[in-house]
Amino acid sequence: MDTATEGEKVETPLNGEGLLSRLDPRVKIVLFLVLAWTVALAGNLLQVFVFLPLALLFYSTAYRKTTTILKLLLFADFFLLFVVLTQLFLGSPYEGILIFFKSTVIVLFSLLLLTTSSVFDLLHALHHLKVPNKLLQITFFFYRYLFTVREQLQLAEKSAKSRGFIPKTSIQTYKTYAYFMGNLLLKSYFKSENVYKALISRGFKGYFPVFRHFELRKLDILFSLFTIIYWGVAVWKFYL
């Protein structure tokens, strides 16, 4: 179990870091989608490498978080490691290398364009980008109570440990984890009932009023122009 210190908030890894965090999240989401999909569709290394300078330029705005970024790039994703290694040794090494760079570039874009905004700002931006409201409400409640649910689990773990529980390969251990989950499901079920009552008693009609509105500023426009031109030239020269 990932034990985080109490009181820690669940938040995007680069929230508020560097120049890119000051951009309008709507702009960043759209640009991210364009760039990520382009790299995802790349068929050879050259098509990936042409976007590497852009990714590194973005990275330079958050160089102070190099450790965090490296950790997320290299160690977060076991599946990537698995695919790259099996390709290097049991499949096609070229494919392995291609996948490694595709993934790295896309994840860099994701880290620097998406996770430099807070979760709330991203959700808010998705609302403006016409993502269905019901889905966003679920996302909002999910995020609102994620920390509570995690804390609940940590408390149950603490309770079990304080009664001598040590996780090992045994039915008793699996049963204990099942009890943790049952307990979480039960508490969350009741919690959601209370949340619902609180909502309707405040006249909730199924959408969240947004107090703060995004405003496109000069910086957003310059950044978009630069990125789109870079993208256009790259696609024209290397993809078409």
Partner: peptide
């Protein structure tokens, strides 16, 4: 043994 301040946090079965 440790008896928690809040039994809701302690009981999970």
């Amino acid at each position: 043994g440790y008896v928690f301040q809040n039994p809701d946090d302690q009981l999970f079965a």
